[in-house]
Nucleic acid binder design. Sequence first.
DNA 1: TGGGAATTTCCTGCTT
DNA 2: CAAGCAGGAAATTCCC
Length: 295
Amino acid sequence: MVLQASCVMSIPATVSVDNQLPASWTTHYNCADVTSSYMSRLWSQDLHPQNWTKYQVWEWLQQTLDMHQIDATSIPFQNFDLDGRQLCNMNFQDFTRAAGSVGSILFQSLTDLKWNGQYGQTDMFTPGDIKTEIETDFPCSILPFKEESNFYNTSELFDIKSSFQPNTILSSPAPSSPDPKRSQVKRHNPRGTHLWEFIRDILLNPERNPGLIKWEDHSEGVFRFLKSEAVAQLWGKKKNNSSMTYEKLSRAMRYYYKREILERVDGRRLVYKFGRNARGWRIKYNNNNNYQIII
DNA sequence: TGGGAATTTCCTGCTT
DNA sequence: CAAGCAGGAAATTCCC
């Protein structure tokens, strides 16, 4: 995929994913330079940092780092597992403690936003609006982190839903092109997470759900259900449907063949393969032994 | 209220 | 034989 280099999320392979920022953080802003003109028009100033969700805090963090061309991996993101109110309560020292020398930049950025509603001369905007825009334009299930953070609470799955937002902008092919008129209107993701995304997210977080589904060939997108009924029940739990079974889940999976979200794998039970319209499952390793999920 | 998308439910027949 | 797979058909749910 053409956008591999600029549209990735970097996670140290040696560190548990849940200790890291949602992968979106790096993703968004590696993409931001590519999409700056697109993104800049999305920002507005109608949401004070005080009211940000955790997700929006992360968005701001990533955007600020990107603006200063600071490598997102150079600061411990787990120190910013905060909502807007907590963030605004941090003083300069708190920032330097949390992010070292970068802390002063972050502090300055936040101060500008708090008091001026903007940062420098840029079109600073609220992360929340970016979220809205992306939700509007793309069919892929996308919900703000705050709404999804408990999504897998019963199963201890790490939620990486937020990881795929801006990447979707750059991925191709998209089923349909964004309509600039419609993009001005806020629209929620119609039905929450789609089944294939649910499956993908389990696959991308095996340390949280060992033995449910596993990659057969990650580079090819081939995976296999190990505990089919358990996955079905998990899916049912998410959909508040206690009668979900693998038989029903698999029917939904088969519908994906036509849409090329999945491809058939003949002759192998419980084996599926992501198709050309499934995004966010590819992975590659870079020179720093970090892995990147390619959208 | 109607329409569409994305399942969900049920079913028959076939395959492993 | 049980468990899966393949799809058709209709129902359901949710959103616009």
